[in-house]
Design a protein around this nucleic acid. Structure first.
Length: 802
DNA sequence: CAAGCCATAAACCTA
DNA sequence: TTATGGCTTG
């Protein structure tokens, strides 16, 4: 029998096929099994035609996994089940019927670049300065409006008195008109126009209602308003709508997710049946108890309580630690010991934190102890563009002998010094045998236009000004001078996007590091600081070893599970964040609490929570109190330790091995690690070219991932390998030529070579005339049948061998 | 007005 | 990496 392997609640959910059904699936309660079994049951036992079943997920990946599992379980006819994401469903529908609402069915879909082009064009026509009105901010506002089904006209009405939004209103209107004119839809339009189609053409809606008699939605707590409307319309007729989700795991409010969709399900569908899946197959009793006790403090939620028949398990460890460094030290030390004792492998351990910037101290300790680690869904701290930029400034101020650093920042932020000028300066420097920066000081001796020369003089002078403070003022003052004086922070603030905010946070984290250094050293110097940083920044942290600890934000961890979880930074102000504590909206703290719930329920066997009495934030020492969430956990299931770190018993063993601790926090550095630094890209650069990926920065991933073990995570491609995207380009630039070319002897990874016939998306078929290694990319010359000879870059022109 | 130089786009299909 | 448009300046 199909349902034999299910528990009673799960069985009930599978058997309830008619009418609206809300399955509240707690963390680790086996919801994917329920969805797939329910589909199988509909077909095999209820005689439902697979053609009449629709299953919606958020990501293509989730859809693919669902498809796979359904295919396994359902025999004949499984291929005619509609398993798709919201967006792909809408595309399919619109391709058939969008002509009914005034578009052509051959509409094109605009990506972010296309969107930006349109916005840029509009700003130009409207004489709107794109320095103050950033395209990205406009796009974000338009996207937010569309997610809430707010038309340009409605948007205007809503914001009539808000002068700050005046430009947004004009642009949104014109943008939408432009898209229409171009017969184009952006990503959000796919949903919006599908809803519009259904609302304006009852006969089309009816047809799809007839087809999709049984609808299932996964991760329902993540749906936004327009997605909800889409589903509501489709299910209106037969009302066989089954939504699966967990209101307690709704953590994407900032991206438009509307928790009301799941909370008010029974209001919209009064006859709805609600089934709670509360048996958890992942965690021990104590972990579940902690999760339950925390989440029950939320008022806007559906009451439920996870349970397990696994037994209580170990107590939850709670460490009070003196400061952020000791926190990282304690966690790294604990993992090190467990692995040495053989009770854990690295990959069974995960460190979770609230903000990306917190990864820095952890990384440093992991490197110091030679513990292999990977950052998931982000880039290593010292590889981030903004961190490298500021460090380059500091290096330049310090001695300006590092030509790479000077060249990096000479035009950052943009000050009108371009490649031509840089080439000239470089030539001059080589001829004179002086450094790049020394050459900059002698602009008058080069043939450089006076306009550009003035900009160079300005730049050199500003560096001089920063430098003049060395020794006189605290290093942190100079740091502030740089980020303020160059306008670096200002530029990011103007961007006003989540990404820009994260970048600012990282710069503040670097400032904290500097402040900490300044405090610890008797005679702090900029050179000394940069040396300290170099020890951790330039190290080869990419172990070929596949066994590593993962570090990630809690958002990234959703859907994953680990035997050993460390949850750090459990302090009011950090988690929950200041923003949420001070917010007028009391549900902001509730969202943080849900985040805490997600974090706790990632742990299978052991959970350790840590908080620091003091912590360097934005260069200032903060004394935060213990997180309110911890106070919500019964002390009975906690095993508390105070003073972990310097004097705690946990560290005693480690301390005896090294008496340098306290003065020098890189005390445990092993010399063996240094040797690996040079071969960083030996196997990487070609792979990096082939694996070029855009926008790899700072993604808060975690859309509808199924529970994955560490091993699966490894193979899933979610783990940052350190070579993707911008990071690879930046770091490759600082490598010597011979190192690159040695690994790039042939264009392997391209899949074609000279003489092959290839196909291009736009230009069609052509013959490869030559393949040249052009530094970071391959330059491919192709003779196209209809477009003539073209030189293309392998990274961009995804050529395929025919 | 022409020369010189800077800034940017090129491709995929983010959920 | 390169072609192109746009901006600045002599």
């Amino acid at each position: 029998m199909l349902t034999d392997t299910l528990n009673d609640r799960q069985k009930e959910a599978v058997l309830h096929t008619e009418g609206p059904l809300l399955i509240l699936a707690g963390a680790g309660s086996g919801k994917t099994r329920v969805i797939t079994h329910r589909i199988a049951y509909l077909i095999e036992n209820k005689g439902v035609n697979p053609w009449n079943i629709m299953a919606i997920t958020f990501t293509n990946k989730a859809a693919g996994e669902m498809r796979e599992r359904v295919d396994e379980l359902v025999g004949y006819g499984s291929e005619s089940i509609w398993v798709a994401t919201f967006h792909s469903s809408c595309v399919r529908i619109l391709r058939r019927y969008i002509d009914r609402i005034g578009y052509e069915n051959s509409f094109t879909i605009y990506d972010t670049d296309d969107q930006k082009t349109v916005i840029k064009d509009i700003c130009k026509r409207f004489n709107i300065d794109t320095k103050t009105t950033k395209e990205r901010a406009v796009l974000a506002a338009i996207s937010a409006a569309k997610n809430e089904l707010i038309s340009p006209e409605q948007y205007e009405k809503n914001n009539k008195n808000d002068f700050g939004k005046h430009n947004f209103i004009r642009i949104y209107k014109e943008y939408q008109a432009q898209l229409k004119k171009n017969n184009a839809l952006d990503f959000d339009d796919l949903l919006v126009k599908a809803v519009e189609l259904f609302e304006q053409c009852p006969e089309v809606l009816e047809q799809y209602q007839e087809r999709f008699r049984y609808i299932m939605i996964d991760e329902y707590q993540d749906t936004n308003t327009v997605q909800f409307r889409f589903v509501e319309l489709l299910a209106e007729r037969y009302k066989n709508l089954c939504v699966v989700g967990d209101d307690d795991q709704s953590i994407y409010k900032f991206r438009g997710a509307n928790i009301a969709n799941i909370l008010n399900f029974e209001k919209v569908f009064p006859e709805a049946k609600v089934i709670k899946l509360e048996q958890n197959y992942r965690s021990t009793g104590n972990i579940l108890k902690a999760a339950n006790e925390v989440i029950r403090n939320n008022h806007t939620r559906k009451a439920k309580a996870l349970w397990t028949d696994k037994g209580e398990g170990d107590l939850i460890r709670l460490w009070e630690i003196d400061n952020g460094y000791d926190e990282a030290e304690a966690i790294a030390g604990d993992i090190e010991r467990k692995v040495r004792q053989g009770s854990r492998t690295y990959s069974q351990c995960a460190c979770l934190y609230r903000t990306n910037a917190q990864s820095r101290t952890l990384e440093e300790k992991f490197i110091a102890k030679s513990i292999p680690y990977k950052i998931v869904g982000g880039i290593n701290f010292y590889q981030r563009k903004e961190v490298k930029d500021i460090l380059a400034y500091l290096k330049t101020v310090d001695n300006a002998r590092d030509d790479v650093a000077v060249k990096r920042i000479i035009n950052i932020p943009k000050r009108g010094i371009g490649q031509t000028t840089i080439n000239k300066v470089e030539e001059f420097a080589n001829a004179e045998g002086i450094s790049f920066f020394e050459a900059l000081k002698r602009t008058e001796e080069m043939k450089i236009a006076s306009k550009t020369a003035n900009k160079i003089i300005d730049f050199v002078n500003s560096i001089r000004v920063y430098r003049s403070k060395l020794g006189e003022y605290p290093l942190t003052d100079i740091f502030h001078d740089i980020v303020d004086g160059t306008g670096y922070i200002k530029e990011l603030e103007a961007e006003n996007t989540d990404e820009a905010k994260a970048r600012i946070e990282n710069i503040e984290e670097l400032l904290s590091k500097l402040a900490d250094y300044q405090k610890q050293e008797e005679t702090p110097t900029l050179s000394g600081f940069l040396e300290d940083v170099a020890l951790v920044a330039d190290i080869d942290s990419m172990d070929q070893n596949s066994d590593y600890v993962v570090l990630m934000t809690i958002h990234s961890a959703k859907g994953l599970e680990f035997p050993e979880v460390y949850l750090c930074g459990m302090e009011d102000g950090l988690f929950p964040s200041y923003m949420s504590i001070n917010s007028d909206d009391s549900t902001d703290v509730e969202e943080e609490r849900r985040l805490c719930y997600v974090a706790i329920t990632r742990a299978m066997e052991n959970l350790t929570m840590t908080y620091a009495r003091k912590r360097m934030v934005r260069g200032e020492l903060q004394y935060n109190s213990i997180s309110r969430f911890i106070k919500e956990i019964p002390p009975l299931i906690l095993e508390s330790k105070t003073g972990v770190g310097n004097f705690g018993d946990l560290q005693n063993l480690e301390m005896k091995e090294s008496d340098t601790f306290g003065g020098n926090f890189f005390g445990g550095f092993s010399s063996g690690r240094k040797e690996t630094g040079g071969r960083r890209f030996a196997s990487g650069s070609s792979a990096a070219k082939a694996a070029f990926a855009r926008n790899s920065y700072g993604g808060l991933g975690g859309f509808g991932k199924k529970a994955m073990t560490a091993g699966e995570l490894l193979n899933s491609g979610l783990v940052q390998k350190g070579f993707a995207g911008g990071a690879a380009q930046e770091t490759a630039a600082s490598q010597s030529d011979d190192e690159n070319s040695a690994a790039d002897a042939g264009p392997y990874g391209l899949g074609y070579q000279e003489g092959d016939t290839v196909k291009h998306v736009k230009f069609g078929a052509g013959k490869v005339i030559s393949v040249k290694d052009a530094g970071r990319d391959f330059e491919v010359t192709v003779e196209f049948e209809n477009y003539g000879v073209k030189k293309l870059f392998a990274m961009f022109a995804k050529l395929k061998k025919v």
